[in-house]
Write a protein that binds this DNA or RNA. Structure first.
Lengths: 173, 173, 173, 173
DNA sequence: TTTT
DNA sequence: TTTT
């Protein structure tokens, strides 16, 4: 069985880092991939593909990427379902990123989005370590003892023996 | 922008051929891809991935494949949306198959599912040409003047200049 | 049978357009892809992957890309062999690009390398249409009756019925 | 940087397991991938793609696959070079298999190639443990203290921190 | 609910 | 040096 996806596209939003109850970093995001062909009206449409990244990939995404960033994803399609608010089953499809590539030129990198206005903030925050995991510009350790971060569904691979991350880069560039 | 998917898995159902109002063959189907790793409970789960094939790929699928068949897909992820019955927007993700590979051994092929009972039909239909596009075991031409086949949404690429099918094989094996 | 390759990397040289005896444009080039992991010495190595593009892809490559450009390739591995100078058989492996993506930011594009500045020519030719296919910044027609361009091996797909180019974009961006 | 390959094809030979000086299992093999299109003469050609698998993948290959077996590979292209016998540099391209899929139907599996005549050997060898790593039908541990196995070049990833195997299956089916 |  |  083979299930392989490669995407190159742009983030539709600033990625937001979350943590599972057991402290595993996770980021959900959408990649807009422009089609290489046009429709009947001669317009170039795009596909908006839901993705999820875990651990270091999630942190790198949140620390170095923002809305509009060009990104490469190597991953797999994962489907699932959940009980909708109306009691009906909702089926989901998303790409789980094994590895994430940051394809912006150097000049466009290094301005990590923080709580501050992204471009041209008043006071420089780059390189200033923060205690808030959402603000730190460098890959952070899972905040083991920080009680009030955002919780998400538990990492389904928390105790899986298979490797989750293919690329173990500490820094994406 | 890159959007590439490769899947190898099994059909969850006998594929069913449909035609757009303008006579373009289309088949929607689901591929079950077993994961190569196990979950916390030690179970091997599967992803159930929605796919669509057009034209010759659609015909080959309907003519030569059935529930359980091992299949290889080379395609791309396509997203879209439609108005749900309750007026809410429903978002969709599917794989559009550029090319389809039939990975069953020869012995398991050649028993095309037809209008007849697929498994264990009374009279052999193999190789018997039919006028009904749903029953013919060989790739058929779009039934231009047959009014009462099943209609589906129009082929969005009907007049697109880009190639839809990467592989132009007349026969899949 | 499935044979799919996706690469994102940088051109090791300015691409050079050639034509087959029957006038089909072809460009051979090497893509350097940095590995996402390091070796025992802690160094990040790269793979230098031989590629070939035909027709419009070849022209776009030659017209818009240069040494160092970031490029995405969607293609397949092709192997072959030829008689070496010493009479021994030499085996080759290369990636045939079905589609080529130009991943440089806009600012880095639009300066098509020509005989001019790039390779040290006198006057700027940007945007100035030329009859010479090597100088024109826009995709050109195969120069059917120009006798003295560089000849290469005949296009093996010249009369193949299968589609060669997946993406039919006239302009890569 | 992205470097992803997916292949489905057939082994051109029975795979042979080797070990590096430090005991890492490695198998080199060639996958024949039939093209999905025909050449000018209407013939369907094939690409013969050099591959290498390490560790458990190498063992599974040697234990469960033979000449002609249908196989799926998820991997990356790796290039390198070595000093040829005539002192000239020889450049190599091969696919490093991150994961290997065994696509034969069950009936064709389970007859591990051994020293015995492959199909229909007189005495059943399946499931009979052997001390020879080349004959055992189950994944074996690296033969740490067996001096006289075949040596090959050292595993270049022996001490790499990155994961080598994406799929950690003990058994391929 | 979408990116350049 | 190649597979079905």
């Amino acid at each position: 069985m083979i299930n392989r996806v490669v995407l190159v596209g742009r983030l539709t939003k600033d990625p937001e880092l979350r943590y599972t109850p057991s402290g595993v970093p996770v980021t959900r995001f959408t990649v807009a991939v422009n089609r290489t062909f046009t429709n009947q009206q001669g317009e170039r449409e795009a596909d908006f593909i839901s993705c999820v990244a875990w651990r270091k990939q999630a942190e790198n995404l949140a620390n170095y990427m923002r809305k509009g960033s060009l990104i490469g994803i190597d991953g797999r399609i994962q489907t699932g379902s959940y009980e909708g608010p109306d009691g009906k089953r909702v089926y989901t499809t998303e790409v789980v990123a094994d590895s994430v590539q940051f394809l912006e030129p150097r000049s466009a990198q290094g301005q990590p989005p923080g709580g501050q206005p992204s471009y041209g903030a008043g006071q420089p925050s780059y390189g200033v370590p923060q205690s808030d995991p959402f603000g730190t510009p460098f890959p952070s350790q899972p905040p083991q003892n920080q009680p009030n971060y955002t919780r998400v569904d538990e990492d389904p691979f928390a105790s899986s023996k298979g490797p989750i991350e293919v690329s173990e880069d500490d820094l994406p560039f």
